[in-house]
């Protein structure tokens, strides 16, 4: 049994909206992070991920609840708790007019590093984030990806046992994203750090996480290993069939459910695609979704039934069970909405 490093108990945060009414951005969140694991919080924008991280890093005071970090309460003994932490905020938190090295040095000093130790730590991090040759340039002139890397570098400068990374891949090109994900894996595998990772992208969470908490509207709606979560939706594949502008009538859905042996559910959804600038209706896209165990085998039957009712299938996609499906299953909404 692994040691528990972070213990979050009944954490809540209430905010005021502009119109004055209050609401819970985070409500009664309880979770544990074990030493040496990558724990991810997965949830759509506005789910409460950043608010949660802010509370357990000492930036925001919880409305209710507390978090113990290595046994130290973040509300009662913040300095001891924060000593164990490295934080990579979602926003790029850098002094734009200072160079990469100056930024690293300043925040290193704030962690109590100095002299040779500081120099060495800064050199190592610059190496790790691959910016050794640009260390003297001011970060204002860096690309988004480079700034993100400096932002991450500051969080791991003092080699904390625990690092929080709040959506570190947001707004980043695929190449830089890959690099960041590899860095996260190295932090766990080579440096034996514990990582709390947040994202609204299920692919990356599914790839790197040991355990995942799914959060929506401020509440934890599921928690477990990727495998455990996927089991919640069963072994069903999800078949996504695009049918364009053709209407799909209810009888076809019922026939698929009854006549295709492995199919359990069929749904039709029609989306209108507005033309970007004018807002005028450009096209409509119909999507037929069928849940079925061993979905590829069910495909020929589904296509045959569609043809019989005069519906042309334009494209087919078979999705094996994933966290997206879990989220859909639990909330009835897609993660990216």
């Amino acid at each position: 049994m692994q040691e528990t490093l972070v213990q979050v108990r009944g954490l809540s945060k209430q905010f005021k909206r502009d119109n004055g009414e209050t609401f819970f951005a985070v409500k009664d969140v309880t979770l544990e992070i074990r030493r040496g694991e990558i724990f991810s919080l997965l949830g759509p924008n506005g789910a409460g991920k950043t608010t949660t991280i802010s509370m357990i890093s000492g930036l925001l005071t919880p409305t209710q609840g507390d978090a113990l970090i290595g046994g130290n309460s973040i509300t009662k003994n913040p300095l001891a708790a924060k000593k164990m932490l490295g934080v990579v905020p979602q926003d790029i938190a850098l002094y734009p007019t200072l160079s990469a090295r100056q930024n690293l040095e300043f925040f290193g000093k704030m962690h109590g590093l100095g002299g040779k130790t500081l120099n060495q730590a800064v050199d190592e991090v610059l190496d790790l984030i691959d910016l050794g040759d640009r260390e003297k340039d001011k970060v204002d002139n860096f690309s988004g990806g480079m700034k993100r890397r400096v932002n991450i570098g500051i969080g791991m400068l003092h080699k904390p046992q625990l690092i929080y990374m709040d959506e570190p891949t947001v707004g980043i090109d695929p190449q830089n994203r890959r690099r960041i994900l590899d860095t996260v894996l190295r932090l766990r595998d080579e440096l034996k750090m514990t990582v709390l990772y947040t994202s609204h992208l299920m692919e990356e969470v599914q790839e790197i996480s040991d355990r995942v908490g799914i959060i929506d509207h401020g509440q934890m709606i599921a928690l477990g290993t990727v495998g455990e979560l996927i089991q919640k939706v069963g072994e069903e594949d999800r078949l996504i069939l695009k049918v364009g502008e053709q209407p799909v009538a209810e009888p076809l859905l019922r026939r698929i459910e009854s006549e295709v042996a492995t199919a359990t559910r069929a749904q039709y959804e029609r989306r209108e695609i507005a033309n970007g600038d004018s807002g005028a209706l450009a096209a409509a896209e119909g999507i037929l979704t069928v849940y079925a165990t061993r979905g590829r085998r069910a495909l020929p039957d589904i296509i045959r039934l569609a043809n019989e009712t005069g519906v042309d299938i334009l494209s087919v996609e078979v999705r094996e069970p994933d966290l997206e499906a879990v989220f859909l299953h639990l909330t009835g909404r897609a993660l990216r909405d």
Binding site: G58, L59, K82, P89, D91, A93, L94, Y95, P96, F107
Partner: peptide, 9 residues
């Protein structure tokens, strides 16, 4: 710039 928030952590 979020540096104030970073300092707070």
């Amino acid at each position: 710039n979020w540096t104030l928030q970073r300092l707070a952590t």
